[in-house]
């Protein structure tokens, strides 16, 4: 039987603002299927975003949703999770939102290992504002503000997250739709800060400028460049150049932030009680 998305889509809020061929819709469907699989209670689930095309996602889905300010999703989400640790908190947003303007909040959320699942839709561009380059635009790539090709080096989001202390880090692409569900489910179930980077496509602001004739061509490239992490482990580094390593890249158990704080409260209150 076909999956029924209606249960999770807010009535009257579609059509969405995304362009035909935009990968954000694929991610939204994957997120919905993952939440359904995890059997999350809608009232006890919050989806938080920043600003950008990707960040419009929360408006369409029927949970507690907060469309915050550009780059600030992780910081709002940290306040919400601390305030109500039983709430399942998910962040969604673009690459510019998450690791340019929001980079500081992103790395500190990783460091705290607060139990939030961050789904980062990396389409290598600022889509909403018309295609300026982001920290994830390939070097030499074209954007409206890199008319001679991008002189900047690129952020490796997964490495950044691992280095900053995230305890679950995974990557896939918009082409690998079923893997999106699987990784989000694992991220939600993991206790700690989980980052799922999804390489996404923006035909309008990125594809057009970078000589992709269609979104199909962009997706095909994702398919061809993807190397599952298990296969990558057996490959030489030079063979991996330019490839997209997909799957769970990092997973470890470390104390979760809200649990640590709850223990602190218990300790303080016990000490106060002992003193009388």
């Amino acid at each position: 039987m076909a999956f029924n998305y209606e249960k999770y889509i807010r009535p009257g809020k579609l059509p969405h603002i995304w362009c035909p061929g935009c990968g954000h819709g694929i991610v939204m469907k994957g997120l919905i299927r993952a939440i359904d699989k995890c059997a999350l209670n809608k009232n006890r689930t919050a989806v938080i975003s920043g600003i950008g095309c990707a960040s419009r996602l929360p408006g369409y889905v029927d949970f507690n949703t907060v469309h915050t300010a550009h780059g600030r999703a992780a910081a709002f989400a940290t306040g919400m999770k601390m305030a109500d640790p039983g709430l399942t908190v998910l962040c969604v947003g673009g690459d510019g939102d998450g690791v340019a303007i929001g980079g500081n909040h992103f790395i500190h959320a990783c460091r705290r290992n607060i139990d939030i699942t961050y789904i980062l839709m990396n389409n290598h561009i600022y889509g909403m504002t018309g295609g300026q380059f982001s920290p994830c635009t390939p070097t030499d790539g074209f954007a409206s503000t890199t008319p001679y090709g991008n002189p900047d080096p690129v952020f490796d989001i997964a490495k950044l997250a691992i280095g900053a202390g995230a305890t679950f880090v995974a990557r896939t692409t918009a082409y690998h739709a079923t893997q999106i569900d699987k990784l989000i489910i694992e991220g939600i179930q993991h206790k700690g800060f989980s980052v799922i980077e999804i390489l996404d496509c923006c035909p309008t602001s990125y594809g057009r400028r970078n000589k992709y004739r269609s979104v199909v061509e962009m997706m095909k490239q994702h398919k061809e460049l993807a190397v599952p992490v298990t296969a990558a482990a057996k490959m030489a580094p030079e063979d991996l150049a330019g490839k997209i390593i997909t799957g769970v890249l990092h997973k470890e158990d470390k104390p979760e932030y809200c649990e640590q704080y709850s223990r602190l409260i218990e300790k303080v209150q016990e000490q106060a009680a002992a003193k009388g």
């Binding site: 709002f76 306040g79 601390m82 909040h105």
Partner: peptide, 23 residues
Amino acid sequence: KFIQMEDEIAAMAAIIGASLCGH
């Protein structure tokens, strides 16, 4: 709960988030 955030923007964001959750 007390949390020292990474900067003042984050601190504002965190209190708004917590206020939305009823604090």
